[in-house]
Each structure stands twice: as C-alpha cells, then as structure tokens.
Design a protein around this nucleic acid. Sequence first.
DNA 1: ATTGGCACTCGGTGGCCCCGGGTGCCAGCG
DNA 2: CGCTGGCACCCGGGGCCACCGAGTGCCAAT
Lengths: 336, 336
Amino acid sequence: MRGTDPRKLQILGAIVEDYVATREPVGSKSLLERHELGVSAATVRNDMSALEEEGLITQPHTSAGRVPTDKGYRAFVDHVAAIKPLSTPERRAIRALLEDSGDVEELLARTVRLLAQLTQQVAMVQYPARRQARIRHVELVKVAESLLLVVLITESGRVDQRTIPVTPGRSAEHYAGMRDALNRAVAGREVTDLAAPLGELLETVPPIDRPAVVEVSEALVALAASRAEGRIMMAGTANLARSAEDFSRDVEPLLDVLEEQLVLLRLFTEMHASPGAVEVRIGSELRDQALNQAAVVGAGYGAGSHVAILGPSRMDYVTGISTVQAIARYVSRFLA
Amino acid sequence: MRGTDPRKLQILGAIVEDYVATREPVGSKSLLERHELGVSAATVRNDMSALEEEGLITQPHTSAGRVPTDKGYRAFVDHVAAIKPLSTPERRAIRALLEDSGDVEELLARTVRLLAQLTQQVAMVQYPARRQARIRHVELVKVAESLLLVVLITESGRVDQRTIPVTPGRSAEHYAGMRDALNRAVAGREVTDLAAPLGELLETVPPIDRPAVVEVSEALVALAASRAEGRIMMAGTANLARSAEDFSRDVEPLLDVLEEQLVLLRLFTEMHASPGAVEVRIGSELRDQALNQAAVVGAGYGAGSHVAILGPSRMDYVTGISTVQAIARYVSRFLA
DNA sequence: ATTGGCACTCGGTGGCCCCGGGTGCCAGCG
DNA sequence: CGCTGGCACCCGGGGCCACCGAGTGCCAAT
C-alpha cells in the first residue's frame, strides 16, 4: 500500500484497534459508532473494499465484518501506530527496577518480569552478548576438599560461576597462587580467546602442578563457552493461558517453540541490534509454522542483545512497541 | 470412607482414571467397557451410589455420569494410587540432570524444567533453605572504580552475589585485606547471625577505614537476608495454557497467585519437610480461592526445602506423585 | 450380595427459522 | 469526481424444538 490516502490508513487503524479490543470482525457501521471518522458508512465500505483489495483486511465469511490480515497489522505498525508515552506509574516502575541495582543477571530477571507484567504477554530477554567481552577477573574458591568454585567476571559486569570436582589434596593457598597466575594470564583477554593464554600459562608451570592447571583451565573454557550467547530468560509464559483462545490452532507447538528456545535465538540473530530500535515480526514473517498466529515485538539493548515480547498477532502493538522500546532504552542506558 | 470394600475403591480408581483421561463424566456402562471389573453394570451403579453417598463422586446434572469430588481425589490419592516406577528414559533424564553438575542454582533450574516437562504441569522449587547454613567464604572483587562485587558462599555450596556501589578511591589490595578480615570474622558463623561478628570487626578497624567496612557489611547482611528463604523458581507455567479449559473459572486469579508467590510460600511452610515424603493438596485443601480447582503435589528435598507441581485438580496424580518423589529423592541425594 | 430388566430423566445434537449486522452496487448530489 | 443515502441480498448465530442415547434408580429373581 502506498503511503497515500490518510483516511484509508485511519480506517485500517480503527479496524485494528476495534478488532484487538473486541476480538470480533468489525463492520462499517460499528466502526462509525466507535470512531469519529467524519464520513458515511458507504464511504467506509468503499475504503474497506479497497483495503481488502490490497490484502490488508479480509472477511472470515462472506458478508461479515473485516479482520486485519498479517499484512494489515504490518501496515498498521509501519504507518499508523504511534509511540504512546508510558504512563507515569509505568515509568516509575521501570526506574525503580534499575535503581535497586543488584547484579546484571538479577537486573535482567526483574526486567523481563516487569515487561511481561506491563504488556500482559510473554517477555523474553537474551543474555547479554559476551562475544566481545574481556575478562576482568577470575576467582577460585575451595569449597570442599574436592570441590572448587570457579567464578568468571567480565568487563560487562557479568558474573558466571561453576562448581567443579577437583582432585583432592591441594591447599587453599595453592589455589590462591593459581588464581593470581590465571589472572595474570587471562585478564583483559577476549572471552572467546582463552586457549592461547592458558596454553602459555601451562608452559611456565612446573610439571607437577600441571594437572591442577589443566583441570581449572578446562572449567574456565567451558564456563566461558557455556551460556555464552545462547540462553534466553523468559517470563509471563502463563499469560499465554489468558490469550490461548487467540491461537485458533493448538497452543502445543507454540509451547514447544518456547521450550526449545532455538527458534527464538534464530529470530534474535535476524533482528536489528541497534539499541532502542524496535522491530516487529508478524505471523508468517516469523517463518515458523508454530508461530503463524503469533507476533514478536523486539528491540536491541546493550551490545547486540535483544529484549522482546511475544503474543498473538492480534495484540496491542501500540503499548507493546512503546513498552519494549522504553525498557530497552532504560536497560541500555543502565548498562553503559 | 473406611478402608474396607476394595471393590468400591477399585471403582473409584477407575472413575478417576477415566475422568482424567477423557474429561467427561463417566457412567457405569462405559466404565465396564474400559475396565475389567468382573461385575455387572448394576453392581457398579450400586457402588457408585454408595460412593456418591460418601461424597466421593458427584453428578454434574441429574442422570449424567459421575465426576470425582475433591474428597474423591483425596481418597484416590490416599488409598488407591500406587507409585508407578518411572520409565527408563525418565530415569535416565533425571540422572543426566544431576551428573552435569554446575552449581546449585543451575541444578535447581534444570530440575524444575525437567519436572515441568515430565509432568506437563507447572513445576516449582523452593530455593534451598539457608536458615541453618554457615558461611564458608566471602569474596570481594573490585569490578570498577565505584563498583564492588560481593560474593557469599555457604557450606551448602550455594553462591549468592551482588554488585554494590562503593565510594571510589580504594585499591584492590584494600579490598583484599578487607576480605581476609571479613572471612576471619564471619567464616563458620550462621548466616542469620552476622550482626554481632561484623560489629566486633568494626571495633578493631582504624576509624578511617570504618566507612568502607560499613558499606560492605551492609551489603553482606542484605545479601544474606535477601533470597534467604523466600524465592521460588518456576517452570512450565505455559503448561497452564494447555489445561486452561480445566479451570472452569477464570485463570486470571490463578496467574496472580503464581506471580505473587506468597500463597505458594505459605503452602510450602505448611508442608511436611522430610525429604522424599510426598504430600498432596487438592482444591479446597489449598485454602485459597484462586486455587480452588487446582491441586499441588509436593515433596521435601534437602534440608527443609520443597519441590512441587501444580495443576488442575483433575490431574494425573499417579505420574505426578511418582515423578515428584523421584526428583526430590535424587536431588536430596545429590545435595548430601 | 449380585444381577438382568425396565421405566424414566435430561443434556446434547441436529434441524429449522428468523433476525440483524454486514456487504455491494447504484443513482444522485455537491 | 468523490461522497452519500438507499436498497437488495447474504449468511452466521441464536432461539426453539424434537429426538436420541447414555445414564440412573428401583425391583424382583437368583
């Protein structure tokens, strides 16, 4: 649809709005009742006919009201929806979220919960990308005779930890020394680039100590590799129960997709990464059978990570977009 | 119901089984089709009549099939349901879960996900109780000029972390010294009992350094108090979408309860704590309006914590109980 | 105590009809 | 030329009704 003809767009907007609100096909007459369009029903009908011609709306049965198509939602999002400023309580909730700092993981957990609550949809946040992260500090703590806690802290302030089994008999001081050596070796290095420095370190160590270094090195590499990009934190999946009826097909495959996270990760990698830039994918644009009746509103935050909400394609895009954008911006600003 | 008359119990069991499977009131005839009861329909009817007399089953409308009441489910759970051994794949999944150790939090996260997946219900796990836990180690890491990472490790192997803002200008060595002093002061102390030793520590410190110690002490106390008992980890809430129809009343209040966690925490504190002892609460036994059509199958693990599943009162108690018990036992064993 | 038989009940389903909101088209008007 | 009012038509949904069948309770017989 060419961006011309503001009235047709206005009508499309009204249709989307009503349909999202009532969940029922909307006709020319009832449109006039709820909106100040300034034209007659017949005119609306003509425009609707044109909109249908363009594939933006459709009638579920002959001579019933119209329902937006995916393409219609797309046009709505692109040309009609305007960012709606958040209400002050919402704004305050977001700010409170960030003030009570805690660590990054906790911050994200709270963020995703808040997002789910504000939008009443499923909210997701990608763990901060760590590709580019440099190591700030490695800490070793002897937790028990044969258990060692390995903590990895990156410049981004992210903390990963792991308890590994080790051969017993080494003193706490031994590990303190190893920690210092490790830190000298890897501090400031890229998290993806640990093999070389750890190898060098191994050379400088007396052969007797090498097994210990090897054990810890392996744990460190695994730790760096683990949650590296992959994981997604989710909240509000229970909101699906509320909108289950919106997915006329079964919800099962949808649940599977959420469980899998794989599709979601692909989705995230396809999305723009610039912080605060909101991107919307609707229905078939998600290119996954199970998500055919779903929509995702996402935005980048921090350095290439994403935050998003997922709901039925018949969702309230206006508040969705506004909220996601606001959250992404606040979090980005906080992380910087 | 007196534990006598095994046939009536058998019939109750059959009714529960069929009803859970088909979601439809079950009558005497169809019961005979699906079960080898060895008696005639008339006999079944007589027994059903008696069961109804006792309040274990009820007919939704005059002369339709029977449906178990909460009391009926209770009797089923108490007198009929037998532990069903897990299938080998299930068993293997649980074992795999524990082998790939990681830290405690991660273990619990995976546990709760697995439990949700196996039972197709909402799964919950209480954070390990830390009331009795002693502190093993405190670690301070200067993350940035005015950011300090505080890590608290307890004997149970649990790790809590928090990043706090500090007044800038202190060296990493300063914090190393403080860490050693802190550890001397609090190592081995109860996590609930930090005020005294920290106070003593403060006395021994030169006045100039006191602000620093105060800052860190406060963080430590907060850290110990925070997630202390409270939090609940949840998974599979999306499964509610699947069984949404099972809750004839609206799901909304149920979602609120899950969100709140408060009711759930009360519930946990009311439950038996002995590891592996399964406890079932059905409908009104949960004593919460929103949970009137729900049921919870829970078991203790570790030292006084709980793991549980929540679903519609019309749920598959047999696999629920078996799975919860198995998981609780495995995790308990692993933590010991 | 159990059973086969029988009369009775009543919720659910399918057929039917009507209603109302919805459409498309067209002629007329500013 | 675009908009409007009017009109004929369409059809899904709801209300009504009649029927069917699964289910029940009771009773006499074994």
